[in-house]
């Protein structure tokens, strides 16, 4: 059986765990109770995906590697997630007080990411790495729902009130440039393609563009121009925000290593 490189599994896992942690910040603070629960569900799906991937990676690393060590005892520079998923739930150029979290930013980010992952998991469900393919098949169903949920809100915000349209467009203007990272393969991604366990991510771009075009048209939102900036989160070069996110996420496990409850 072909096996995906460990670094490739970690890239998939890190994206899921970091975005799951970001979405979880809304837990108890959602705009309404029903949506609070919906977003917590998305978050738990993502953390569940990350767990499966970390478990698989740990098994392949061998020795004393565990899913918890991979999630809680690696430092920011070792994380391979896209910069997009670590950005705060805030609009551009605002403070980061909890009260200033912006739901449009959260929703537009989930939309951009889940549109990619719906295509990525679909491709990986046919991976020659059978264990990765099984995780992909499970994640695909969850991710299609996340895409549905986010796209529904993108349309409601974009085609809603003047204020909701303004915020949705601002979130898209802020976040869209970070998606350039999706389409610039890393050495790890190239290795996974060469090993026959992944598709070249660039082959997914037309499908992603079509998903965006349909929803953004319904939402009366305008796709911004990109100006050549390519983030490098998946190379371990992160924004300042990942350190704070991991600081919070990892503090308990590091204060009480090996704790169980």
């Amino acid at each position: 059986m072909s096996k995906a490189p460990v670094d490739y599994l970690l890239q998939l896992a890190d994206n899921a765990v970091v975005l799951g942690q970001r979405n979880a910040e809304w837990c108890g603070h959602g705009p309404i109770l029903e949506e609070d629960i919906a977003l917590a569900n998305v978050s738990l799906d993502l953390i569940g995906q990350a767990r499966l991937l970390y478990q698989l990676a740990a098994a392949r690393i061998g020795g004393d590697a565990t899913e918890d060590k991979l999630a809680y005892f690696r430092d920011p520079a070792e994380f391979r997630n896209y910069t997009l998923v670590e950005l705060p739930n805030h609009g551009a150029l605002v403070g980061y007080a909890a009260a200033d979290m912006d739901y449009a930013t959260t929703i537009v980010r989930n939309f951009l990411y889940s549109a990619l992952m719906a295509l990525q998991w679909e491709a990986l469900a046919n991976s020659a790495d059978e264990e990765l393919a099984a995780i992909a098949a499970k994640s695909l169903k969850e991710t299609r729902y996340h895409l549905h949920h986010a796209a529904d809100w993108v349309v409601r915000f974009g085609d809603g009130t003047e204020e909701s349209h303004r915020r949705a467009q601002a979130a898209l203007d802020h976040l869209y440039r970070y998606t350039e990272e999706f389409w610039t393969p890393s050495a790890t991604e190239d290795a996974a393609v060469a090993a026959g366990v992944a598709v070249d991510v660039r082959s997914l771009r037309a499908g992603w563009d079509a998903l965006l075009a349909e929803t953004l048209a319904d939402a009366t939102l305008v796709r911004p121009e990109v100006r050549g900036y390519v983030p490098e989160g998946k190379h371990g070069l992160h924004s300042e925000h990942l350190s704070y996110l991991l600081g919070e996420m990892q503090s308990l496990a590091r204060a009480h290593p090996g704790a169980t409850w």
């Binding site: 029903e34 949506e35 919906a38 569900n41 949920h149 409601r156």
Partner: peptide
């Protein structure tokens, strides 16, 4: 109604 179905699924 469409949103109510979604939310019912999650709740």
């Amino acid at each position: 109604a469409a949103q109510a179905l979604h939310m019912a699924r999650d709740v």
